[in-house]
């Protein structure tokens, strides 16, 4: 497998056998040169398909729509739907702002990752609403976001502790996929987290509880969600 890089063209043409395809897809995760090459070659391959365009049988749409309608949304896509379902209105903003005003989390603001994002000239602060996944507790959170740098920081108060084998995990959801953006645990209900990856305007920021090592895709219930 020394020549994995050469697999880009056969891959784009679906001309690898299953084992090679799996190996190359794994390789793609770590090789940005191959990713770029594949993106380009796939477009070329797709153009062959586009030139083959033939009107589909009229009945086909009905069959497809019926199948996806009857289809319970599968686990991974379901995540997005759940994330979407719990996007909240801005009604709680003022209340949460008051709560934060009362909570002096950091004696020295310069050390606070949240404040360092807020310091960006284009920073916006939005509430990060909790879903009703919490029972009996009502944590509050807010997000600072700088569109120019893409930096995101989140501040929580009243956040319940998690079990020793669990952690909170933040997510950035863009283009239909959720990417891990940092693990954290509250200290006395408080947490301030600078997310480990940047986001673009329109991205969603979400939080779930995951096994202590973190997950690559969210598995826990969505606890917070907001659109940047």
């Amino acid at each position: 497998m020394s020549d994995l890089h050469d697999f880009a063209a056969p891959y784009a043409l679906n001309a690898l056998d299953d084992a090679e395809r799996d190996a190359f897809e794994l390789h793609l995760d770590s090789c940005s040169a191959c990713r770029d090459e594949v993106a380009l070659l796939l477009e070329a391959a797709a153009s062959i398909g586009l030139e083959s365009e033939t009107p589909a049988p009229a009945s086909m749409k009905g069959s497809v729509m019926e199948r996806i309608g009857a289809d319970p949304v599968p686990a991974r896509s379901d995540l997005r739907q759940r994330f979407g379902r719990w996007i909240l209105g801005g009604a709680a903003a003022a209340v949460v702002a008051l709560a934060f005003a009362a909570a002096s989390l950091w004696l020295n603001p310069s050390e606070n990752p949240f404040q360092s994002v807020v310091a960006a000239p284009d920073a916006v602060v939005v509430e990060l609403p909790a879903t009703d996944a919490f029972e009996g507790v009502a944590p509050a959170a807010r997000v600072a976001f700088s569109a120019s740098s893409g930096d995101v920081a989140v501040e929580f108060i009243g956040l319940p502790d998690v079990a020793p084998d669990e952690t909170y995990e933040a997510w950035i959801i863009e283009g239909g996929s959720a990417s891990p953006a940092g693990l954290f645990r509250p200290d006395d209900g408080k947490a301030v987290v600078r997310l480990t990856r940047t986001a673009r305007s329109g991205a969603l920021v979400g939080v779930t509880i995951e096994p202590a090592a973190g997950s690559l895709q969210p598995t826990g219930e969505v606890l917070f969600l907001v659109e940047l």
């Binding site: 594949v38 993106a39 796939l42 586009l50 996806i68 283009g175 239909g176 996929s177």
Partner: peptide, 21 residues
């Protein structure tokens, strides 16, 4: 495509390219 739409990564190609793949 319906099931895997959330796996689509726009950085790796357009939706049309992804669909035809």
């Amino acid at each position: 495509m319906w099931q895997k739409a959330s796996d689509w990564n726009p950085a790796r190609g357009k939706a049309k390219t992804w669909a035809l793949m």
